[in-house]
Design a protein around this nucleic acid. Structure first.
Length: 383
DNA sequence: TTTCGAATAT
DNA sequence: GATATTCGAA
């Protein structure tokens, strides 16, 4: 069982008010540090089995700690203990090996503020009997940090059950983690479904685009109409896979071939060069729901957009010029503003970018653009 | 009584 | 925006 905690914050007032409760972080007080083998706690259980009777949930630990050593807390210890706790957290953060069946780290955040209990009687009496992992009365539960690994396990469980039969209790069962409650799962599941719904809608929209593009693209090819409007490659076939069976395209989804899931993040400025370079890795740990969280393009992959703004890139043939010279491009020192690029590209950046299979000759616009790139034309004109 | 899930709060 | 909590329904 792995458990990480946030740095200590001791609320003296609350400690006095609640004789039996402890701050969640107090389990790192000196006695607990002595009593707990953190090598076992934080390195994990390699055989994949958690100790059935050892509730390592932070709340349990807090209660346990509270009963043992609450009054022994010494203020001068806190600073160094904080340091100890921080370093322990770092160890947990670093240990993200993905061993199937292995218990996973649970990062929790300390509640931000004093809780406001609207109905103390209700919360204390009902919840204390309902679940063993209660926060002390009047204490807000620590937020669960859904780490990528946690989320991966969650998605795995959902897939295993099927999206329709995935309910919090079963998911929790399959995930086999002690640091989550059914409520945690339910909350996450709610968000998961919400995002899934949203993404399915987007996929449907993309499929619609694909169908339209196939229609018009075919017509264009037959009649030699402007090939700039609709590149005919790059879309996956519209597969008849039933939606209820399709996984959510989110970070960490085990069933998604991530090599096929390149997305251009909406908030990242579109590329100046062609082909577009992969976006820089996110600085902070982004939410796994976000597309760029899964953007891991292999080196050398060529990209082209699903659609292209024809008005910004007039067909060279229309001007009777060789393709490589007909597309205007700014002097090399021109760097269009983000706003102008956004205006020029429009929602193109919100569409999936797909890898161009090696050895496949790019059609029309892509061939031109690749050729442009080969000839050193690397910038697009400002809007 | 328990669980679920949508709505709402933090 | 992410997560917790509430609350009505099954």
């Amino acid at each position: 069982m792995l458990l990480a905690v946030s740095p200590l914050r001791i609320d003296e007032r609350e400690s006095k008010m609640q004789g039996f409760s402890m701050e969640e972080s107090e389990f790192v007080d000196g006695n607990m540090l002595d009593a707990i083998d953190f090598d076992d706690l934080f390195v994990g259980i390699s055989d994949g089995e958690s100790l059935p009777d050892l509730e390592m949930d932070h709340e349990i630990l807090a209660q346990f700690s509270g009963s043992e050593s609450e009054t022994k807390m010494e203020n001068e210890k806190h600073s160094e203990l904080n340091t100890a706790a921080d370093s322990v957290s770092d160890v947990v953060l670093e240990s993200s090996g993905l061993i199937p069946g292995q218990e996973i780290a649970c990062k929790t955040e300390e509640p931000e503020s004093e809780p406001v209990v609207k109905n103390p009687d209700r919360s204390s009496s009902k919840k204390s009997s309902a679940h063993s992992k209660n926060p002390p009365p009047g204490k807000k539960k620590a937020k669960v940090d859904w780490t990528p690994e946690l989320h991966r396990r969650f998605v795995q469980a959902v897939e295993q059950l099927g999206i329709d039969k995935a309910v919090p209790s079963r998911i929790l069962e399959i995930m086999g983690t002690d640091c989550l409650t059914r409520h945690n799962i339910a909350s996450h599941l709610q968000k998961y479904r919400s995002h899934r719904k949203h993404l399915l809608a987007r996929e449907a929209e993309a499929a619609s685009w694909s169908r339209r593009r196939q229609m018009y693209g075919t017509a264009a090819a037959q009649t030699e109409v402007n090939p700039w409007i609709a590149p005919t490659m790059g879309f996956p076939p519209v597969t008849p896979v039933p939606h209820h069976f399709r996984p959510l395209h989110v970070w960490g989804h085990p069933s998604v071939d991530q090599s096929l899931m390149y997305m251009w993040p909406k908030h990242v400025a579109p590329p100046h060069a062609w082909p577009p370079p992969p976006p820089p890795p996110p600085l902070a740990d982004p939410p796994f729901w976000h597309p760029h969280h899964q953007y891991v393009p292999p080196p050398g992959t060529l990209f082209f957009p699903q659609q292209f703004p024809p008005t910004r890139f007039p067909p060279p043939a229309a001007a009777g010029l060789p393709a490589a010279q007909s597309v205007p491009h700014p002097p090399s020192d021109v760097h269009p503003s983000k706003e102008s690029i956004d205006a020029a590209i429009g929602d193109v950046i919100t569409k999936p970018w797909l890898p161009l299979p090696l050895g496949l000759k790019p059609p029309s616009i892509n061939g031109v653009m690749v050729e442009l790139q080969r000839q050193g034309v690397s910038k697009i004109p400002p809007a």
